[in-house]
Amino acid sequence: MLRKIKRSGAGYVLPAVITVAVVMIYPLLYTLVMGFFNNTLFLEAPVFCGISQYKKLFEDKVFLGSITNTLVWTFGSVFFQFGLGFIMALILHQPFVKGKTLIRILLMIPWVTPSIIGSAVWKWMYNADYGIINFIFSSLGIIEKNQTWLSNPKIAMWSVIAVNTWKMFPFILLMIEASLQSVSKDLKEAAVIDGANVFGIFKNVTWPSIAATCYSTTLLMIIWTLNAFTFIYAMTEGGPAHKTEVMAMYIYKRAFMDYDFGIASAASAVLFALSMFVSLVYLYLTREKEGN
């Protein structure tokens, strides 16, 4: 038996399998099961309660609001991250641009800066009275009076999205720029000789070779943003008036502030289902790409 395991190579993956089982599979299954149990700090043992937690959850206005907030947060962030990353990749890729390595390194700084540090610095820059952002914007005449960027319910979400965009666009830029390097030069030259214009070349030569990377990076970004927690926790804690309370934040608050682990588990299951849906699309698309 032991020898059989050894020969099959399964022994090599055993430590990884055990770790993954303990820190991922077990917690995940536990969460999914706990969604059907009443489980607060005040109960001695969890009590089975069917789908009543889910009923309660979908009657909770704050939870429903958190779904909307999650969608705004995710699609808002990814839209700007991708837009900026994509355009900057095309700009940086132009052959005449000098010092590409240095530019890449400088642009990567936001991405390697720990999120909690990014939050602290931006919080200071957003400061209503002495923040540099109010100073710059009012000197440029963009705003008339100082704004409270993180505590105004109308703009708080967009202020945090701006920080998330700042942090993540370098990643997209890098991925797209790397795939632009794989675009065939011969095809491009042939298209130029045939008299194609810039847009024609982009549509018929460049896009087909970078499309797969664009799709998969976007989906990866969607998954990461759905799960992101640090920026919102550190900058607004879900406020003002639940306006930035995304699902991850909602779950955290129910579990570790209200100690209602049952409802938090049910909400986790909903968030998990959402991420899995996106992940399946991602897997489907990357598999397609490997097939090519």
Binding site: P27, L28, I251, S268, S275
Partner: peptide, 8 residues
């Protein structure tokens, strides 16, 4: 999501 596994 890490928030899904932190409770268990």
């Amino acid at each position: 999501p890490s928030v899904v596994i932190i409770i268990p």
